[in-house]
Design a protein around this nucleic acid. Sequence first.
RNA 1: GCGGGUGUAGUUCAACGGUUAGAACGUCGGGUUGUGGUUCCGAAGACGGGAGUUCGAUUCUCCUCACUCGCCCCA
Length: 434
Amino acid sequence: MSKQNLQPYKGARDFYPEDKAFQKWMFGVWRDVVERYGYVEYDAPILEPTDIYLMKGSQEIVDEQTYTFEDRGGRSVTIRTEMTPTVSRMIAGRRQELAYPARWYSIPNLWRYERMQRGRLREFWQLNVDVFGLVGIEAELEMLQIVDDIFSAVKAKRSMYEIRVNSRVLVNTVLQQAGLRDEECASAIRLIDKMQKMSAADFAAKLDDLTGSKEKSKQIVEFLAAKDVTELDLFLTKLESASALKELIARAKQLGIRNVVFAPDLMRGFDYYTDIVFEVFDKNPENNRSMFGGGRYDGLVGQFGAEPVPTVGFGMGDVTFQNFLEVHKLVPELKSSVEVTVISPLTTGQEGIDLVAIARELREEDVNVAVDYTGRKFDKQIKAADKAGSRYVLIAGEDEAKSEQYTLKDMKTGKEEKHSLSRIISIVKDARKK
RNA sequence: GCGGGUGUAGUUCAACGGUUAGAACGUCGGGUUGUGGUUCCGAAGACGGGAGUUCGAUUCUCCUCACUCGCCCCA
């Protein structure tokens, strides 16, 4: 038996009960918040025809970063790497019968074949929130509100993270204004996306290479230096995209979301986003990184041959979010779902005791009950119940069997009292509310 | 795909070119027969794999594998 046989597949995790408890808690927070905004849950198969990921024209991503294989019927299938194409497909399929705006969410597990590093595994879960059918910035604002509420639900302070926003339309306008052709714009967007990772001089040199003129570069650099939408020059300020962005930021701040900032260098990769994009950054020095983001992608549903449906959405991954919670010490202590463990020095049948019957009576009242059954020494039984996280221990021995008054030990306080089973049921239920 | 780091018990770590490779936590058992989270005693349990140098390698070298951090990429 070698060591590695005990490990889960590379980049994927086993969820031991304590891990699963954390996951359930985190998903619960996500669900509670988005459902409060009227979002409804959907899901889809974990496998998609490979074609769906080729629509963006990126053969390279499919070849290098997906789990793709041929099924027995010769069809090329890919394990889902993101939910956006899938949800767009689903919306396109029922576009005429849906009630708009349609607010949908999902928490799919996704697989990407990559080299791991902090915050990045091969299998992860991702909260996907999308609203279909809204053209105004209210949709974007709603996303920012949801993000803000999720962080507040886990007791994170706004000073711990930052929401950066930008507009792809605005960036494109700036690039075109600087006289760049379409393919040069695409290269410039890639370059700007990497700006934070290189020195200012390096960036300037590469930008000059691209534009072929210091004058053109200057316009772009000036735009990138803006800290606020109001700092943009007069021409840009008059653009619709600029005023939409300005309004979004202002309205977010009115709602108290003060950690929203304009980030002219924010690009969100090189994908289907069409207008406003946003990204959430952790401000903790130990984890100073982009956590997740989203934006408007009005064109994707239309790619399925349907009329385009305006869409805004975001996806947040479980791994990065967990890193955030850990770094900021926001992971709560989670209770076990075991409420009562029945322990006894006797086994069923001895001295008229019936452990099964006791447990059943409690279960009929929806109390979660585990029974030890081993009949081993008391300290072992109590220790095991404690380790399992049981809130109470119910001691059923000879005395109790005779009197039908059972000893209930509160594992938190260590106190114990004798009660009838019906009284025990109400005590346990009362404890849930705390 | 590229580069760095690390591989010793279940976990976190130690030591050493040479007798039985240590500890802590955890696990299991016990401290007289019905009380855990505090304490006392005891036990089980490890050098990732291969090759080389050497009288002798867990230690040095190389290869390999695994894990990990970063680059690329990031939907």
